[in-house]
Amino acid sequence: MDAESYQKTVDQIAPKRPVLLNCMKAFLTGGIICAIGQLVSFVFMYFFSFTERTASNPSVATMVFLSMVLTGFGIYKKIGQFGGAGSAVPVTGFGNAVISAAIEHKSEGFILGVGVNMFKLAGPVIVYGVFSAFVVALIKTILVKMGVISW
């Protein structure tokens, strides 16, 4: 049996991911999460002295806290199975990645378990986030120095 023709058979038989439906589910899930985030941000602005600019930090912290609670109770993975990227892309997905790894590795102790593995899944986001920010800043600096654009 050669691998190529076998892969064709697999492609024919394997159930397809319902891409369109998944996109809609992701849109809905992500939308709801972001709407909740907006609400939280309004609460910080309305009841506390935060402006639109300064409310974002406490809002993010609150959303991460919420995702931590949901992860701990085993609800977030169900949301993830339903929503896919819709629940992975917002900051709650980042929180879920950090916390699920921390819970998982608690059995190996706080240093070698939690400490070492906490950013096992979220680490790439930080590494490449910082790296791409550096690259973009570098490009912009060069363009500004050349006088193409201004800050």
């Binding site: 991911r17 992860t71 699920s100």
Partner: peptide
């Protein structure tokens, strides 16, 4: 699962396969 895939509580979407 923790050895071969993701942490148990990680909300990754599994395909129908």
């Amino acid at each position: 699962e923790r050895q071969f895939r993701y942490p148990i509580e990680y909300g990754a979407q599994k395909p129908p396969t």
